[in-house]
Design a protein around this nucleic acid. Structure first.
Length: 469
DNA sequence: GCATGATCATGC
DNA sequence: GCATGATCATGC
């Protein structure tokens, strides 16, 4: 392949490469293959074959960007089809392996991640199980330059990861530590652990990646644009923190600072100050108040903001009674029986994504027992520790086995009293409502729950941390 | 008084 | 009408 002099695009110009990429959309590589081409196998081979067959380039192993003269990286990434025939993101976008010993000496500007991913040509293809790479269909082409604002957040994420390695805690890294850039698990369970520079403990292999939630919002913007090939995508969701604030402070600090002036204030007084009408005593009044403070806009839901969505970050309120107990357990999404039946890998499951994501907990604490005089007491970011994720995997297996056996009924689930940190309970507007199952019959709607004792454990651990400071 | 089944409230 | 966050309300 020495055809580079006559390439049908300008290899130094990202726009030209992007324009040329449109010719692959709606097609498969089979239309471009030539006699004698040896198809590549294994993961990552799709990208190589696109380079060879469509862009007429030889595969390089150079650590810089694929289109180095254009400063642009080619990324082929799979979509899957959802129940309603919509496209869904299948995987996080993995960039490069983290070499714990080297990476502590690289600042962000010189990192492989930054050099490769600041400007990317994303080619989305439809994943098909057991399908020859030549027959994969390409769906969308996106020229994605990480916006300044996202880069500010990603740079902070990078520092969080590096600092954890510098503290000798590479083995404790978690995707939930960060917002957009995650240190995701890579490789199989039995793989050898890697060396880390500041601890003798081995750490699982991890890679820098853009998280599922981040990729999902890119796809959302593409879909909203109504076009199959897009660049400079417009973000339409609520913006919580403007870029100029992020130049000075981390996203989390901005959030915490917004709550600072209100700490210690009772919820009724807060509602009055924030001009929120709680005369009808709505069930979610604490969430309404927290949203108003966090967004600085009365009725906005911060969980739907661009930053929270891209980060897979969720704000939740917790009420602590005067005696320290937590009255209510914490609910999550309804169980998608089709998803859990079809997904046999814990790390790729929806539950793993929910439980390993990052949370912003807003704590309201009762002052006098039984009086319901809750004050805004504390706000903090939290991620489930690795040790609890092991319990969560058992929980997932328990649910999955029951779903596969058709045991979708109260008597089969873990209960709160089982003291296993998590349980399963109904959640629906009406108890008769059904949710789809693989056998087509449908089943009662249940959802994932944290036990109230587990929520208490989270709050207590936070208190211990504060006391140690 | 607690655990669990059930439903509310909101926003899109 | 539904997903999601949150809390109610009943029976033991």
């Amino acid at each position: 392949m020495t055809m580079q002099a006559n390439l049908p695009y300008n290899i130094k110009n990202p726009k030209s490469i992007f324009e040329y990429s449109k010719g692959l959309i709606g097609k498969t590589l089979r239309e471009f293959v030539w006699d004698g081409y040896e198809p590549k196998k294994g993961k990552g081979s799709v990208g190589q074959m696109v380079e060879n067959l469509y862009f007429l380039l030889e595969t390089n192993n150079y650590a810089g960007a694929d289109f180095s003269e254009a400063g642009m990286e080619l990324k082929c990434t799979p979509l899957k089809e959802g129940k309603k025939e919509q496209y869904l993101i299948k995987e996080r976008l993995v960039c490069n392996m983290i070499n714990y010993c080297d990476v502590v000496n690289e600042d962000f500007e010189h990192s492989h991640f930054y050099l490769k991913c600041q400007l990317m040509l994303l080619l989305f293809y439809l994943h098909q199980a057991n399908c020859n790479n030549l027959d994969l269909k390409f769906i969308y082409s996106v020229l994605w330059q990480l916006p300044e604002k996202d880069l500010l957040i990603i740079r902070h994420d990078y520092d969080v990861i590096i600092n954890k390695i510098k503290q000798g805690k590479a083995h404790e890294l978690s995707e939930g530590d960060t917002m957009y850039l995650g240190a995701c698990r890579k490789g199989q369970k039995g793989d050898n652990l890697m060396k880390q520079p500041f601890s003798s403990e081995g750490a699982p292999r991890r890679a820098f990646s853009l998280k599922m939630a981040y990729m999902r919002t890119i796809l959302e913007y593409v879909l909203a644009s109504g076009s199959k090939a897009v660049t400079n995508i417009k973000e339409t969701d609520l913006e919580v923190v403007p870029v100029k604030e992020l130049r000075e402070h981390s996203f989390e600090d901005v959030m915490l600072n917004r709550f600072q002036p209100y700490l210690g204030e009772g919820f009724k007084s807060l509602a009055a100050d924030l001009e929120i009408d709680i005369s009808k005593n709505p069930k979610n009044k604490f969430a309404i108040i927290a949203n108003a403070i966090a967004t600085m806009k009365g009725s906005s839901n911060i969980n739907l903001s661009q930053e929270f969505k891209k980060a897979g970050l969720t704000m939740k309120t917790i009420r602590v009674q005067a005696d320290g107990k937590i009255k209510e357990a914490m609910s999550f999404e309804n169980i998608d029986y089709v998803e859990i039946a079809e997904c046999d890998n814990w790390f790729e499951s929806r539950l793993y994504e929910i439980f390993s994501s990052r949370f912003m907990f807003v704590i309201f604490k009762e002052q006098n027992k039984g009086e319901g005089d809750f004050i805004l007491d504390d706000v903090f970011f939290w991620t489930m520790p690795q040790s609890d994720l092991i319990f969560a995997e058992n929980y997932w297996n328990h649910i999955r086995q029951n779903v596969l056996n058709g045991h979708i009924h109260e008597e089969y689930w873990w209960k709160g009293r089982d003291k296993k940190k998590f349980h399963v309970r109904p959640k629906a507007q009406k108890a008769e409502e059904l949710s789809p199952t693989i056998d087509g019959k449908g089943a009662k709607k249940f959802c994932y729950w944290f036990n109230n004792d587990y929520v208490r454990e989270i709050v207590n651990n936070r208190q211990l941390e504060l006391n140690n400071e």
